[in-house]
Simulated scan of single mutants.
Amino acid sequence: MTLVAPRFRTRRSPRLATLLTGAGTALLPWMLVLAKTLPQTAEVSNWSTAWIGLDAMLAAGLCGTGLLLKRHDPRAAPLAAATAALLAMDAWFDVTTTAAGSAQATAVALAVCAELPLAAACAAVAVRRPRHA
């Protein structure tokens, strides 16, 4: 049995599509405002908590995806998609928030050798059709 992505059959989906597209479009000028007004540096509270929380979500996503894959559970695909997005975001913020020098070189190496390959693997799981329903 082949699973096909469900189609939205409600009357709300054209409105939802318009809302989501409008929200994405509204972010474009907002990004320009941020680019011109945000400071280059900032002191941040709870920095370690934020990063530990992100790593906890990554661990849950990777472990959950692996366990669901072992069971041939089709729910692995959406979890893998979310995990891929988190891994790409983690790589981006690791590289862009690290000071220049050896710390940034380490962040780039981790992004290239670990986070982005894992994101690609999760993305492959997300687009692959499940074997069993």
Rank of each mutant, 00 (worst) to 15 (best):
M89R: 14
A107E: 01
L67S: 07
A59N: 12
K70D: 09
L16D: 11
T98S: 10
T97P: 00
T25F: 03
V95S: 06
A124H: 07
S13I: 08
G66C: 01
S102I: 03
L86H: 14
P29G: 12
S102P: 07
V127T: 14
P39Q: 01
L116H: 02
T83I: 01
L3A: 08
A126Q: 04
A107R: 07
S13L: 03
A60F: 11
T18I: 05
V4G: 04
G66M: 01
Q40Y: 00
A56L: 12
Q104D: 01
N46F: 11
D90C: 03
R12V: 06
P74R: 08
T98V: 02
L69P: 02
D90G: 02
L68I: 09
L62N: 11
A111P: 06
R9C: 02
C113H: 10
T98D: 00
L116T: 12
V108S: 00
R11I: 06
P6I: 07
A26S: 13
T10V: 02
L20W: 12
D90Y: 12
V44C: 03
A123D: 08
A59R: 14
P6D: 02
W30L: 15
G61E: 03
R128W: 08
E115H: 12
L54E: 06
A84V: 07
A123G: 14
A133T: 13
W92N: 11
D94E: 10
R11A: 13
A17P: 04
L34N: 08
T106K: 04
Q104E: 01
S45K: 14
T37Q: 03
W92R: 12
A107M: 00
D90Q: 13
A76H: 06
R9E: 12
S13H: 14
L86Q: 14
S48Q: 15
A42R: 10
P130S: 07
E43S: 08
R71Q: 15
A124K: 15
A114H: 11
W30S: 05
A42H: 07
W47P: 01
M57T: 11
C122M: 15
A91R: 04
D90E: 13
G53I: 09
R71T: 01
D94K: 08
P29K: 03
L27M: 10
G61I: 12
P74C: 05
R75A: 15
W92H: 11
L118T: 09
S48F: 06
T96S: 10
V108N: 00
V125G: 02
A59P: 08
A5D: 14
V108T: 03
A109T: 12
L68F: 06
G66L: 00
T98K: 02
T18N: 13
C122L: 10
A105W: 01
R12S: 09
G61D: 03
G66Y: 05
R128T: 15
P130L: 05
G53E: 05
G66D: 13
A76C: 03
L68Y: 09
L110M: 11
R129F: 05
L79M: 06
T98L: 00
S48D: 15
D55G: 07
D55T: 12
L19F: 09
A121H: 08
G64D: 08
L32K: 04
L16E: 08
F8C: 07
L20E: 09
R15C: 04
C113W: 05
R9Y: 06
A91V: 02
R129N: 06
A23R: 11
G24F: 04
A60R: 15
A100N: 01
G24W: 04
L28I: 15
D55Y: 13
A109E: 07
T25G: 05
M89N: 13
A109S: 15
A100E: 02
T2K: 10
